[in-house]
Computed example of a mutant assay.
Amino acid sequence: MVRPRPVLLGAVLALLLAFGGGLVLIPAGGPGAEAADEGLPLPPDIPRLAEGPQYEECLGLLRSDPDGALSFAEGWEGAGGGEGARHCAALALLALGEPDRAAERLEALARNSQGSAAARAAVFAQAVQGWMLADQAGRAYAAATMGLTIAPEDTGLMLDRAVALGTLGRYRDALDDLARVTQAEPDRAEAWVFQAAALRHLDRLPEAVGAVDRALALAPDNAEALLERGILRQLRGDAKGARADWQRVIAVAPDSAAADLAQQNLALNEAGPKRR
């Protein structure tokens, strides 16, 4: 089953910090700083751990009123809400900017749940994102690995683990997971972007260029792919091409983390000659 991957801002920032390199700077505020303002890792077709109107009501509150969702979940758990209540409470903590507490609960829930393998894998994926938001890539790697023990063909978890491995500097191991993803889903543009970045960190620039070109062939306006190609162009001495890519990032995704990083890279690009 191909499970859609949500894109939390914090998760994207963690990924870019793992694979950024080049001119990319670490954004201020930390990887979880804006978690509460972004969508939760809860696409509508992710398998649920429970059923019933209270579960759906609680999940429905997450985006509009996470404080209310937490209060609802805690009251419901006290009345015997079980796994559904604990799941909603953990996601509410994530929405409220407490990713470490959320990830701890999500991981425990995924380990001990009586739900289906698909549902448990989905919760492990949510735990991975929580740990990444909490800047704990080692815990994210462990959670992804546990998820893959029950859903070994889950390419989303493979991708999550690759991001965690990249954050830990384990680029060769990340490439192993990314190779499995691109083999299973060759049209998955973000996997090619991450592969390009990992290859760049290993100084395999021609291969990195090939991977990012593949990503952009699949998704010409993918902001992360454009950001990465700009970095590669800068490293290869093509300052004009790098500027064009970073300007395109800002044009196609002006409110994204990639655009923030592209803007910083443009500023550094402009400042470079003056420093010399």
Results as ranks from 00 to 15, higher is better:
G82T: 08
L227D: 02
A189N: 04
P31D: 06
A253W: 03
V209Q: 12
V24A: 11
I231W: 03
Q54F: 06
L94K: 04
E185N: 05
L13C: 05
G80D: 06
P27F: 07
L168P: 04
A242V: 00
A223D: 13
A164P: 07
L205D: 08
R236A: 15
G272P: 00
E98C: 02
L93I: 09
A215E: 02
A85W: 00
D255K: 10
A244T: 10
A117S: 13
D213N: 12
K274N: 07
A219R: 12
D177M: 09
Y171M: 14
A257P: 07
V123K: 00
R161G: 08
W76Y: 08
A33F: 11
L226E: 00
D173F: 09
L106A: 04
M1A: 12
A50Q: 02
Y55M: 10
D154K: 07
V2L: 11
E104T: 12
R200N: 12
N222L: 13
A35E: 13
L70E: 11
F19G: 12
L235N: 01
L61T: 02
C88Q: 01
G39Q: 11
L96G: 05
E104F: 10
G166H: 01
A33R: 12
D160Q: 09
D221R: 10
P31V: 14
S116W: 07
L25Q: 15
L8C: 04
A143G: 04
A257T: 11
P273T: 05
G60Y: 06
A140I: 05
A174C: 08
